[in-house]
């Protein structure tokens, strides 16, 4: 019943696109596998399980990432505690509360640009503001504040996009039922936007967790031999430790750098899993593409 295509007509452009997509996927997966393989190959020469807890040492076979691992945990925890509430709160204010004035537009433009500022520039700002200005020195706290400054614009941008993507009817229907602005935000908008807001928080924390440049600017890679137990302790972190070891010529230190890199990757995976566990089951009934379609538009 379907009429044949006119002579000389081009066949629909379907298959080549699929091939390109397939190649792209293969390249991406292969790259990740090669990186993992190289790290594992290097890490074969690690001194032993004590590596995870031992302090760094001049001797490669006695060195470990204990202080750096503890430092990275501290930094991520503090950055999360500072940046996530400030970032999500600012996004809520900008989208739901701020009157659409010129000041609000200017604030938004500044925040958008901040999200694109290179991380090393945040290091310079942190050095001037927190290390010297507030006299915090090259401490865990100064590092966490610097990383928070870097994370906040990302959290704001992603949370704002999440709130703006909600269907307008959701907001209006809640207002029409006599809800106050806070009730609308708390009971309808935040739960509906939560998955995307959390994705933004994860993106921001992963980026700061792996950042070496800003930490290198605010303080030297310390050779501390104890794990930090408070935010006032000297700064130590996995990325800067990797940087320090990778600069050493001896083969043993390259294995240490690879081991620390693997630890950083595992820490990132743990963070992703933890945030995934936090995500509320908003579409409690039938997750998956069906639920996504429904929240996106809804019939009628």
């Amino acid at each position: 019943m379907i009429p044949p295509p006119p002579p000389g007509a081009r066949p629909p452009f379907r298959r080549p696109l699929g091939v390109v997509a397939g190649i792209a996927t293969t390249v991406a997966v292969a790259t990740a596998l090669v990186i993992a393989l190289l790290l594992l190959l290097e890490a074969r020469h690690l001194p032993g399980p004590g590596f995870l807890l031992d302090p760094p040492s001049r001797l490669a076979d006695r060195a470990g990432i204990g202080p750096a691992l503890a430092g990275s945990l501290w930094l991520t925890l503090l950055t999360g505690l500072i940046a996530l509430p400030v970032g999500v709160g600012t996004a809520l204010y900008l989208v739901e509360y701020a009157p659409p004035t010129r000041t609000a537009r200017a604030t938004l433009a500044v925040l958008t640009n901040l999200a694109g500022v290179p991380s090393i520039v945040y290091g310079m700002a942190g050095l001037a503001l927190f290390v010297r200005g507030l006299g915090l020195g090259p401490s865990i706290l100064a590092g966490a504040l610097t990383l928070s400054a870097m994370a906040i614009p990302i959290v704001i941008a992603d949370s704002r996009a999440a709130l703006l993507s909600l269907p307008r009817g959701l907001r209006e229907a809640a207002f029409a039922l006599g809800a106050t602005r806070w009730q609308v935000v708390r009971h309808q908008l935040l739960p509906s936007a939560a998955p995307r807001i959390l994705a933004g928080c994860r993106r921001a924390l992963l980026r700061t967790m792996g950042a070496a440049a800003p930490l290198l600017v605010i303080g030297p890679v310390s050779f501390i031999t104890f794990a930090p137990t408070s935010p006032a302790d000297p700064l130590a972190a996995l990325p800067t430790r990797i940087f320090a070891w990778s600069a050493r010529p001896q083969a043993g230190f390259l294995a240490l750098a690879a081991g620390a890199s693997l630890a950083l990757v595992l820490l990132s995976a743990l963070l992703t899993a933890a945030i995934g566990a936090l995500a509320p089951r908003t579409a409690s009934h039938g997750d998956g593409p069906e639920a996504v379609r429904r929240t996106a538009s809804g019939p009628g």
Binding site: G169, L170, A173, A176, A179, H187, Q188, A283, H285, G298
Partner: peptide, 23 residues
Amino acid sequence: MVLAETSLFPGSVFDNVAFGLRA
């Protein structure tokens, strides 16, 4: 007011009715 677009809250029928009352 009932809006022109059907805009139910994601959740159960009870959640939808209870929202305005709880507010």
